[in-house]
Amino acid sequence: MSNSQVETVTTSADKAKLAGAVVLLAAGLVAYYALAKQGPIAQWAALLVLLAAAVAAFFTSEAGKSLIAYGRDSVREVRKVVWPTHKEARQMTGYVFAFVVVMALFLWLTDKTLEWVLYDLVLGWKR
Score class of each variant (00 low, 15 high):
79 R>N: 03
112 K>V: 05
26 A>M: 08
42 A>F: 12
89 A>Y: 11
103 M>D: 06
95 Y>G: 01
31 A>Y: 08
104 A>Y: 07
48 L>Y: 09
121 L>S: 10
111 D>R: 13
95 Y>P: 00
75 V>C: 00
96 V>A: 06
92 M>P: 00
112 K>H: 02
96 V>D: 06
85 T>Y: 03
16 A>R: 15
108 W>S: 04
109 L>N: 10
107 L>A: 04
92 M>S: 07
77 E>C: 00
67 L>K: 15
8 T>P: 01
119 Y>A: 11
126 K>C: 00
49 V>S: 04
55 V>A: 09
32 Y>R: 15
10 T>I: 01
2 S>A: 11
89 A>L: 09
12 S>A: 08
85 T>E: 02
106 F>K: 12
82 V>R: 14
45 A>F: 07
117 V>L: 13
59 F>V: 10
3 N>K: 12
71 G>R: 10
115 E>R: 03
88 E>F: 01
27 A>K: 08
5 Q>C: 02
20 G>H: 04
17 K>M: 03
6 V>N: 03
117 V>H: 10
27 A>H: 12
72 R>C: 01
31 A>S: 12
20 G>I: 04
58 F>L: 13
12 S>K: 15
13 A>R: 14
106 F>G: 02
109 L>E: 11
92 M>N: 12
29 L>D: 05
39 G>Y: 12
40 P>Y: 12
95 Y>F: 06
69 A>E: 11
60 T>R: 14
102 V>W: 09
119 Y>I: 13
15 K>Q: 09
117 V>K: 15
19 A>H: 02
7 E>I: 10
109 L>K: 14
93 T>V: 04
90 R>D: 03
64 G>P: 01
40 P>Q: 15
60 T>Y: 04
